[in-house]
């Protein structure tokens, strides 16, 4: 490749990277700077991070809690639903699948308003974090379902199950031994989506939360709107520290198992060892 073209490509790539990364770096730096308007020469500090930790720690734990609860809920609801849809290849099943995608298409605000209109009168429920959880589960369920369904549709589930049944396995054994292990990759991919979506969800949560059930993104909006820029940025930094290891872990788990390639052909198939 001519060096000029290579240099241009490299420059372009670096420019795009910079465009994406510089704001992140600036935001992180802002959270660590004594006075952002003065600049870095004002010195670096953990003051803002500690302030956020002391003031907003509960939102952080609440977000993690809701995300994990949401994951549990979507696993319990989504995996069996995907299994049922994969087995029922009927038109009704297809229609139902489309219906389940609705919460993604409908704006979060509309879903939230519908939830408030329906259940807002149940004050115990309205003021608990479970109310937010319901919204998150509605919004993330399609992602779990789609991820699992895609994997299940790619394997010949019916025949595999018939094979297991022919060996004596009942419905529950087939589900645990055959269905679940073979949709492992879909479940992991779906879990990754659900955790990150729930963790970062703002639209729905903004309407569903109460002052006592703020989640991290809601708290973040709060901090940016009413406090110093440095505090908001420190808040972002904490969010980062929490979500990046999670993303990396999930990504590592979701990586397809690489198997050593072993060439196999039938030229060396030995004759059966039959007893005379």
């Amino acid at each position: 490749m001519p060096p000029l073209i290579f240099s241009l490509q490299l420059a372009f790539t670096l420019a795009v990277c910079a465009f994406l990364i510089v704001p992140v770096v600036l935001s992180v730096l802002a959270g660590l700077t004594v006075n952002y308007f003065v600049g870095l020469e004002s010195g670096l500090t953990l003051k803002w991070v500690i302030e956020v930790w002391n003031g907003y720690r509960d939102t952080l734990f609440r977000s993690v809690g809701i995300a994990l609860a949401c994951l549990a809920l979507t696993l319990v609801l989504g995996v069996p639903a995907a299994y049922a849809l994969a087995r029922a290849k009927s038109r009704l099943g297809r229609a139902f699948e489309e219906l389940l995608m609705l919460p993604v298409a409908v704006p979060g605000l509309a879903t939230a308003l519908a939830l408030i209109a329906s259940y807002g009168a149940l004050s115990g429920f309205r003021t608990s974090w479970a109310f937010i959880l319901v919204g998150h589960a509605l919004f993330t369920l399609p992602f779990m379902l789609r991820a699992v369904l895609a994997v299940l549709s790619a394997i010949d589930l019916k025949t595999l199950e018939e094979g297991a049944a022919s060996l004596g396995a009942g419905p529950w054994q087939r589900f645990v031994h055959i269905v679940l292990p073979n949709c492992r990759d879909g479940i992991l991919a779906g879990s990754l989506m659900v955790l990150t979506l729930s963790m970062g969800e703002f639209n729905l949560t903004w309407l569903l939360h109460t002052p006592l059930t703020k989640t991290l993104p809601v708290g973040l909006a709060d901090a940016y709107a009413s406090l110093r820029l440095e505090v908001g940025s420190a808040y972002t930094l904490l969010f980062f520290l929490m979500i990046v290891p999670l993303l990396l872990a999930m990504q590592a788990l979701a990586r397809p198992r690489r198997r050593r390639f072993i060439p196999a052909d039938d030229t060396d198939l030995a004759p059966l060892a039959l007893k005379p």
């Binding site: 025949t159 018939e162 094979g163 022919s166 060996l167 055959i178």
Partner: peptide, 15 residues
Amino acid sequence: EARHVGMVFQSYALF
């Protein structure tokens, strides 16, 4: 599952 017959499928249905 209750008939105790062995079955070999066209696609083998190996797990």
